[in-house]
Design a protein around this nucleic acid. Structure first.
Lengths: 287, 287
DNA sequence: GGCAATATGAAATAATAATTCCAATCCATA
DNA sequence: TATGGATTGGAATTATTATTTCATATTGCC
């Protein structure tokens, strides 16, 4: 009996894109282990290009024979010829990458197409990141961590453009099992929520110009209750700064009227994880 | 008597640039055939990376044994270890940030202060950005824009980790006066909201592994209603991909267990703004 | 031009890696 | 729940590839 493999009409994918398309098309019908190696192949194409059948199989958690069966199902006569496709891809990419990049730059500069918009946002994000990594005040950073680490509940306060950052902070704090409360306006009960905060808690408030009046108001209120505040904002003249124990000035580059959030996000994540770390440490000390 | 090779003080070049320099420096003193293979190696580094000793030797017009002698003269113990340097070079071109990230991770793990955590998040974000800017499929990008631009209402669907992106998209679409609906679960009315979508609308669905079951379910439902879907996800094997008209694969680097969102954010913003642009264009044409 | 040291070619050998084969397991179907 | 077919794991086999060896050629030096 013939193997499924090389019947007459079978087209063997010669280039990576075709191969990729073929795999995706068939993935529903692939057996479990074969599907596993298929996913691994598309996710780590470089490993396929460089590894040996045994090493790749081990990384993907299957037997070498499965890897060969996978190749054969696709119409190749063995692993070696499948590997050629992955190698070819690397060669082509590297040889033409510089040229392609140059072409893209030229196109973007003459303002053609939507790619320029994408490149603009990527550039804005990169700029913001390198900016914040240069200017971050480490003392403030440590202070903020200390302040947040000893809070009973961390309140997270942000509206409009800053809201995505707040929701990611809330998500991350939750994952780290740190009690937190995101102040959202859905039910119009913000004032009540805020009322529960005490000086034993802490607040992360985020707001950029034009500052959402609600954020300012709520920050003022919560500050009056004696709750310490860590603020992330875009200028030392920000109305948030006056209420905050510690504040960070983050300059985000903008493109097409929308400012990047990447620097703020990076800072927010670093704060969150560092607070988690600090809590683990002091928890250990106490125990 | 010993071969010239491995005397005590000999430093074996570990990276391509050092190797290259070493070869150029010694080339005067190399015997004829060795010089021949040396020249070939520098001119066709990709061949060295992927070929077999026999095939390379044939292309360069020498014997395999010469190739091995060449490697040994440089201090390697054989062709195989020389070849590693050429392969490493190809890999590094793709991911030069990866090493830096790995180093930062190690540093953060051995408790080297909170600054390392911050640097880690910045590095993860930069890596993700440079990655997506290299791999974005422009055709898919244009398709997605076209599809979203002609939608009556754009539904935005994401949970948990992806939710911040969704909320930013909703914010930006609102600013651009594009009708949109963020599918949130607050009131438990998702099913009803989704029910309103028609084939004249469109969906942006975002989900990363581990895929929130609710997102998958809702995407399936809305897809069954014939609403075209643009998906942003992290692997072509993502369950979202099968429902989507167009999908983007975004590989976000992670740090401390939290993946960056910067690439996804940049893509999301670019999509949003490009859709706004496209609408203005076609609006003008009609008027 | 002769001698020694070095370099080269070609085939033999050793090492490594791909592939095949068969028994065990899983899965769907009656 | 029994049965047949497909799938999988793991070792045995085969193929490929790197390396070594040794005889031969070349080069530089006296």
């Amino acid at each position: 009996m013939a193997l499924g493999g090389a019947t007459m009409d079978e087209r063997v994918p010669r280039d990576f894109e075709t191969l990729r398309a073929t795999i995706l098309e068939r993935r529903q019908s692939l057996p479990k282990r074969i599907a596993q190696i298929a996913a691994y192949a598309l996710d780590n194409p470089d490993d396929i290009a460089f590894g040996t059948a045994a090493s790749i199989a081990a990384s993907a958690g299957v037997q070498p024979s499965t890897l060969i069966r996978f190749a054969q199902q696709l119409g190749f006569d063995g692993f070696t010829s499948l590997q050629q496709v992955f190698r070819e891809r690397l060669r082509e990419r590297n040889s033409s990458y510089d040229e392609r990049l140059a072409a893209l730059r030229a196109k973007a500069e003459e303002g053609a197409g939507h790619r320029a918009i994408f490149d603009g946002f990527v550039a804005a994000a990169s700029t913001s990141l390198s900016d914040i990594s240069r200017t971050l005040n480490e003392e403030h950073f440590e202070e903020a961590i200390a302040l947040l680490a000893k809070a009973e509940t961390i309140y997270v306060l942000a509206k409009r453009r800053s809201y995505p950052v707040a929701s990611y902070i809330a998500y991350a704090l939750g994952k780290l099992k740190i009690r937190n409360q995101l102040i959202e306006s859905a039910a119009g009960l913000n004032a009540e929520m805020i009322g529960f905060a005490t000086p034993a808690d802490a607040v992360i408030a985020i707001s950029f110009s034009p500052y959402a009046p609600a954020t300012i108001e709520e920050t003022r209120t919560i500050s009056d209750q004696g709750v310490p505040i860590v603020a992330i904002t875009d200028s030392s003249f920000s109305p948030l700064a006056q209420f905050a124990k510690v504040w960070f000035e983050v300059a985000e580059a903008d493109f097409g009227g929308f400012r990047s959030l990447s620097a703020t996000m990076a800072l927010a994540m670093a704060l969150t994880v560092a607070v988690g770390e600090k809590r683990r440490e002091s928890g250990r000390k106490k125990a």
